[in-house]
Design a protein around this nucleic acid. Sequence first.
DNA 1: CCTGGGATACTCGTATACGAGAATCCACAT
DNA 2: ATGTGGATTCTCGTATACGAGTATCCCAGG
Lengths: 224, 224
Amino acid sequence: MRGLGDGLMQKPLTVAEQVANVLRESIAEGSLAAGTPLRQDDLAERFGFSRMPVRDALRQLEGEGIVSIHPTEGARVARMDAAEIREIFAVRALLEGEALRLSVPKLGNEELDEAGYVLNQIDAEPNVGRWGSLNRAFHLALYSACGSARLLGLIEAHHNAADRNVRVLLSNVNYRSRSQAEHRDLLTTCRHRDAEAAVRVLRKHLSDRMETLAKAGDGLAGKS
Amino acid sequence: MRGLGDGLMQKPLTVAEQVANVLRESIAEGSLAAGTPLRQDDLAERFGFSRMPVRDALRQLEGEGIVSIHPTEGARVARMDAAEIREIFAVRALLEGEALRLSVPKLGNEELDEAGYVLNQIDAEPNVGRWGSLNRAFHLALYSACGSARLLGLIEAHHNAADRNVRVLLSNVNYRSRSQAEHRDLLTTCRHRDAEAAVRVLRKHLSDRMETLAKAGDGLAGKS
DNA sequence: CCTGGGATACTCGTATACGAGAATCCACAT
DNA sequence: ATGTGGATTCTCGTATACGAGTATCCCAGG
């Protein structure tokens, strides 16, 4: 859970955080496959910094569940099998369902329009790499009125954790169009301020996407 | 969320983790009040180590939401007002409710007996400081069969985050006896393998404890 | 040819050292 | 007396250096 309450606080961007961001993106993008050893020396040399910021970044990513660290053994990109993907999506369904339930009654047109704008951006975005963060932005916009920064932080962390698994399927046009259709359904339901219906749509959306992921992505996450 | 899946993995205990444990315990115990600045130099000197392990420990605790770090400003014990306490308990109710629902059907007598044993330990434990970890052990024992290491990790993290707020009320005999009574109710329901009833008991337990905490602990967490 | 032991190399954890930025405090001028 | 400016101090972030543990690889012996 990275920075439970960030988003508003103006922190001087430190090198360690930049490294963490790049690593997170590289892992999400897929250029760093699951199980890849992350040597501190190598990374330090690649980035042109010393090992200290790299250490901090790895610690941070460990907290997000993206890498796993063993003191003597070093850090590796966290493995993620089908069971793990199901776990993440189950937690997401739980957290996001609750966040949506709390948020919908308090949603203003401002947030709804923002969500709709993001949806259009997704349709117009040719670069697959940016789809993950846009997807996250859409969901968080709908939850933003839930009133619990902690809940939002957990949700964001789990989006990050699952990002790399989502992206591998984005080249599949079917996945993208179905996902977008479900997104628009969800937004419409939210516009009607029907919280329970929205939660049902969301849970089905997550459940369907998860099944697709777990089936298709079973082997590609890499095995030991 | 510290070590999503620890508990079984045998890691060489590093100095940084020891420091983190001591700090976590000190914060939970209350000797480090909310808002207290945590100077790296001071802590390093107190523990007899250099600043590096302290830095790592602080990073880790930040990930757990126990301390907040600002790059130039340093680290402080995270503030926690009544609203934050309610957030934590709301998340706990959500996570633990689901974990219990998943776990109850698969619970063996082994885990149930373990939970009962822990309850007796709580009654027999004179040292208030150990009540927090025993309480956590009881709850986790009931959830242990849920099948999701991720869920258990999140639950553990939120127990740690709320620990210090729980402990301040333990000197109150009423709180302790009522909590124990609710615990025994919960255990009995679990023994009957009635998942939905167990979830209802748990949610009421958490809700009641939260209300007591939020009311009583409103001012004692310290203000700026 | 296979196995066991020892030395080497590698990686992490920790310590020390240096530079930058911010907050504080004091002096001076108005 | 009060406000402003500058210098000092304090703290963190980052770099470099050292020590310990572990895995690996090669060579000798069976």
